[in-house]
Design a protein around this nucleic acid. Structure first.
Lengths: 233, 233
DNA sequence: TCATAACTGTGTTATATAACAATGTTATAT
DNA sequence: ATATAACATTGTTATATAACACAGTTATGA
């Protein structure tokens, strides 16, 4: 579907929520500076420590933003879905990247140089407000996440992650299967636990009929219970 | 010093970093809508769940932003110093407060209704960019904090906190005494550990001649070592 | 189609840290 | 000056979870 579209159409697609905020001249500026790139599953999009110079827009696929922790342990900070923007925070803060991003599955990403974005927001206040809202929302989620990851027990953290995956990527047509298929290791990195414990705890949930697990396919059978465990489990 | 200033002067003071970004008309609008309030030590400034309607500016004193966790355990998210803005994130995100704020010591705070801020931002792009930068910086710190609190061991977390306190509030004239005097419980809430462990670990640091502790007065004797422990201890 | 690697699953052990308890110390208020 | 409460300290025990090890399973690619 998307892959059949022209570059122009892809650019339009990539404007996403920003589209209604732009006039035709601004759209022209964007189109002229925009480029699109595809990434294979697990391919790095940017690395910790690199200079941040591009606004990125996920057009297709899934992307994970993560941070290397102590001893090679990585922590998934957030997951991006189409059409969402990412990669711009560091530039706005005047920093290099403090996170890394990789394609969780094959992905199509649009890029726009941040200086261009900067020019645009200096003239278009609604666009500036868009970024303010994005950042404010992300900051709230990050703060909530900090407390969840530090204070909840392992069951609560996993339950929380499963619910977050549902909110973020939704379910298959059957209405209970998570639309994202992740390795146990990623589930662990998302929930701040070891892979072994992610596996064990997920098995527990399955034994308690809260989820049905078939390989990487996870069905949320008893969402109410999951929510209860997430609140305090 | 500050307490002798007029309301007008206090307002000026409260504009802080925003001041150079404003024209005289904007300053007038702010002055007309601005009000100032003092808070006693430990007094609540806003609570979790309340509607967020005011931009706050700490003119004098210290403020802690915290979040109630599981079982009454509270997590200090960040500490505010003069002149810094806070309390605006939730409004921008269209949410109610997800954190609470209280005066860590007697504080003077300026308030400006967020709708006024919104109006100003819509017309003054440099002001909008100011908030973008603030939010982007805070988001970066929050992400870093998430990994620090979840992955570092107890010594590393405490060391990290001590260094953060130094960065945030600086040192007394002697060049080694932290300018903030906090209860062990607060140090614990900052570092995601129990009060007992904050006390124990701080005693350890003292025994290792990394710090000198005298009640709530903490001297950073060996900052290099503290930094090393923070990186991995 | 076989070899290799990546992933999943399970059991065991070690350990960091919370939980609890009890006591000492220092502020605060009357 | 004394009572009361808040805070600091120390020790002990319990426990959640990491660390490790090994085996089985499923992809991957030559």
């Amino acid at each position: 579907m998307i892959k059949k579209l022209s570059i122009e159409a892809l650019t339009q697609e990539a404007l996403g929520e920003m589209l209604p905020l732009l006039d035709s001249n601004e759209k022209r500026i964007i189109t002229e500076n925009f480029h699109i790139q595809t990434f294979k599953k697990n391919e790095m999009i940017y690395n910790e420590g690199e200079k941040a110079e591009l606004l990125m827009c996920l057009i297709k696929g899934k992307v994970k933003i993560f941070k290397a922790g102590i001893g090679g342990r990585s922590q998934i900070m957030r997951l991006i879905r189409p059409v969402q923007y990412f990669g711009y925070r560091a530039y706005f803060a005047g920093e290099d990247y403090i996170t890394a991003a990789s394609a969780f599955e094959n992905a199509t990403i649009g890029f726009l140089p941040m200086p261009v974005v900067d020019e645009l927001i200096k003239k278009n206040n609604r666009l500036a407000c868009f970024f303010i809202k994005e950042l404010a929302t992300d900051l709230g989620m990050s703060d909530t996440r900090t407390v969840n990851l530090t204070q909840k027990h392992i069951r609560g953290r996993l339950a929380e992650s499963l619910l977050m995956l549902k909110d973020n990527y939704g379910l298959e047509e059957d209405g209970i299967t998570l639309s994202i298929y992740m390795a146990r290791e990623d589930l662990a990195n998302l929930s701040n636990m070891t892979t072994s414990n992610a596996i064990r705890t997920l098995s527990c949930f399955a034994a308690e009929k809260i989820v049905v697990v078939d390989g990487r396919k996870i069905q949320l059978v008893d969402e109410a219970k999951l929510r209860k465990i997430s609140r305090f489990g």
